[in-house]
């Protein structure tokens, strides 16, 4: 089995420095968005998906586990946050916590089940579990079936930040995204992350070295699912609704596509991929189902000729780890 990614380059202090510089550049660029006249709603949406893709990438890029059901965490967190905000009238910060807690609980259960099988079976199990959840949400009363939860109030975060103001909301979402991104970066570069990578490269050897690989994979799954839930909870404030599309398998496919386009197992790849795919959907919205055809073509092209993804190619060209 060949490795998913090309990271023969050693993680050196130089790589860390490159990544930190790039992170600061990215943060500054994103922070300046409200002054540039770019439609903030678009960027906020892209940020939520970028965080989701980063969480997904933690699992496949560093754990070698392809989850085809990551939309279930986003959708579940969205429904639970939305319900907490609208029906229970909780303030935003608690609403987000409810969503994260829901995704955490869900990832404990689904992780326990899906980690039992490897490779291709793992993907099919996560897909089947997310479809199971889709049908449950279709019938459950609190999700309002096909209508979804509409008109979710944004409220005041910590009682002071008025989230109904686009600029305030933008910075809250940005801070949430950057916090999630840094957390994932920290996980990847921790001893835990190193063990995870070794499992991806050669699981039998990791076992022979005494690591309980199942526990590592389970923990990675839970971390990834919970962070995906955080992305879903943030998205509730941007879209002000929670609907079945967020749990559907096609959404899980989009997350995979974003990460693949940006670069599997790269740190910044999922962010770039999310912006590319969301922008594409924005501009091609008038073409109806051709968007699906284009997305499918991108999958095919990426897999056949462009497996490193955008950031992966750049990193490979400059012989850096990004």
């Amino acid at each position: 089995m060949t490795a998913l990614t090309d990271d023969t380059l050693p993680v050196t202090a130089r790589a860390m420095r490159d990544e930190m510089i790039l992170f600061v550049v990215m943060a500054l660029l994103l922070a300046s968005v409200p002054f540039t006249g770019v439609y903030p709603f678009f960027v906020m949406q892209a940020l939520c998906f970028a965080l989701l893709a980063c969480a997904f990438n933690l699992l496949i890029g560093y754990g070698g586990l392809l989850s085809f059901g990551h939309a279930m965490f986003m959708g579940t967190a969205g429904y639970c946050s939305g319900h907490a905000l609208k029906v229970w009238g909780l303030p935003p910060e608690l609403g987000i916590l409810v969503g994260i807690a829901a995704a955490f609980g869900l990832s404990l259960i689904t992780g326990y089940i899906s980690i039992r099988r490897q490779g291709i079976y793992f993907s099919m199990i996560t897909l089947a579990l997310s479809q199971l959840l889709y049908f449950i949400y279709l019938q459950a009363p609190f999700t309002h079936g096909e209508d979804g939860i509409q008109g979710i109030p944004q409220g005041h975060m910590f009682g002071i930040f008025d989230l109904s103001k686009p600029t305030v909301l933008y910075y809250v979402v940005l801070v949430g995204f950057l916090a999630g991104f840094l957390l994932i970066y920290r996980i990847i570069n921790s001893p835990f992350g190193e063990v995870l990578k070794s499992i991806r490269e050669n699981e039998p050897r990791a076992i022979s070295l005494g690591y309980r690989t199942d526990q590592y994979k389970f923990l990675a799954f839970v971390l990834s699912g919970t962070l995906a839930g955080f992305a879903g909870a943030l998205k509730v404030f941007v879209a002000q609704n929670a609907s079945l599309t967020d749990v559907h398998w096609s959404m899980s496919g989009e997350v995979v596509l974003m990460t693949l386009v940006g670069g599997l197992g790269t740190i910044f790849g999922p962010v770039v991929g999310a912006f590319v795919i969301i922008a594409m959907q924005q501009y091609l919205a008038g073409f109806g189902q051709w968007v699906t055809v284009i997305q499918g073509s991108i999958f095919v092209i990426c897999v056949l000729t462009f497996r490193r993804g955008i950031i992966g190619e750049i990193a490979h060209y400059f012989r850096r780890s990004l």
């Binding site: 392809l66 291709i120 993907s123 189902q289 499918g296 095919v300 990426c302």
Partner: peptide
């Protein structure tokens, strides 16, 4: 190549055909 690429490629083909 890794199994996963086969899954991703055929998923892309399915999207194209269905679209």
């Amino acid at each position: 190549l890794d199994h996963l690429y086969g899954l991703l490629l055929t998923f892309g083909i399915a999207l194209i055909v269905q679209g």
